[in-house]
Computed example of a mutant assay.
Amino acid sequence: MPQEGALLESRTLRFEHVGRVDALDKIKSLAMLPDGVHVRTEDVARYFEVSTGVVRQMTARHRAELAENGMRVLRGSDLRRFHSDMVSLWGAEAGESYPQAATQLTLYTRRAVLNIAMLLRDSDIARCVRTYLLDAEDDLRRGYVDLDRRVTDVEACLGGVGVALQELGPVLNRMSYRLDSLDRRLEATNRVVGAISNRLSEMSADINRVDARVDEVVHQLRDLRRGRKRR
């Protein structure tokens, strides 16, 4: 796991962690402006329990890096528009007077505040944030190692299944051959049964014809008997 000092010295390493803004609230609640997006210099100082001068010095030394993570300075019309928006939100939520900057206002996003946490040396809160980030990274790394081990175990199991399937191959082939043979025998049996059924139908027709012929002969014999009695 990287040492805490590595975050202080490596911009690349800070960039890898700057999206983990959840770390701020894990250590301490960060009071946001009414828009829920920005904080001022004094809010940042209050969070890290340092003076506003320390935050301003940090901002001056790392302005480009912090600007990449959302820090900006408002002046002129942009400042007036922002104040107007904040006054309406502030009044609606708290009913208090919103403190307005006279000529300019530096605003920080949560990413920028986290960036400061990885730069600020003389703050116990900043150290706690850095420690949380690195511990969380270490936990994540261990989780990946454990996941990789489980995937390896699954692959080993699947390899065993593959061997078992190869061994079952000849058995399955024999079973398939026997099933095909049974299908052929069943088909032949069906043909025999069909032929017997046809033959039985023909025999039934023959029997019906014989019955009809017998009835006809019986009628003829009766007629002959009646004729003899009349004579």
Rank of each mutant, 00 (worst) to 15 (best):
S51I: 07
E49A: 11
Q3D: 09
R230W: 04
A212P: 00
R226V: 14
D135R: 05
V50K: 01
R11E: 15
R111S: 12
G162C: 08
G5A: 12
V55L: 04
S84L: 13
L107C: 12
G194N: 15
D146Y: 04
V214L: 00
G162N: 09
R110E: 07
S77F: 00
R63K: 14
N173Q: 10
P99S: 12
H219L: 12
V55D: 06
A126M: 06
R72N: 11
D85H: 11
A64K: 13
V218A: 00
D180P: 12
D78I: 08
R141H: 14
E155V: 08
I116Q: 09
L147T: 11
Q104C: 05
R226K: 05
D148K: 02
R191N: 15
H38F: 11
D183C: 10
G194V: 13
A60P: 04
E93K: 15
V210Q: 00
E68Y: 02
D153Y: 07
T103S: 14
L133V: 03
L74A: 02
L165K: 09
R191M: 13
R209M: 00
N173I: 09
Q100T: 14
A92H: 14
N115Y: 06
V37A: 06
G169T: 03
L89D: 14
R142Y: 09
L13F: 12
V154D: 03
T59F: 07
R184D: 15
D43I: 05
Y108K: 07
M118R: 05
V37F: 06
F82V: 04
R121V: 07
E49P: 06
L147I: 08
K229L: 10
R228H: 02
A92T: 06
T41Q: 07
E16C: 08
V214T: 01
A67D: 04
E65H: 02
I196H: 15
Q220Y: 01
L89M: 15
V54M: 05
T152S: 09
Y108F: 15
E155N: 07
V171P: 12
T41H: 03
L8D: 01
A126S: 07
D206M: 00
Y177C: 09
L74N: 01
A205I: 03
T106H: 12
V21A: 06
D211C: 00
G19H: 07
V54R: 12
D124I: 04
L7A: 00
R127L: 14
F48T: 01
R46V: 04
L147K: 07
V37L: 13
D124A: 11
D25Q: 09
H83I: 05
G227M: 05
T52L: 04
D206W: 00
A205R: 06
D139I: 06
E16N: 07
R225C: 06
Q104M: 09
S77V: 08
V151F: 05
G160R: 12
K28S: 07
I125H: 00
Q3T: 08
R127T: 12
Y132L: 11
I27A: 05
W90I: 05
L133A: 01
R141M: 14
R110H: 04
S29G: 11
G95S: 03
T41V: 14
R231H: 09
R226D: 08
K28Y: 02
Q57W: 03
T152E: 13
N173G: 13
N190H: 08
V37G: 04
L224K: 15
A60L: 12
G76T: 11
V73Y: 00
R46K: 14
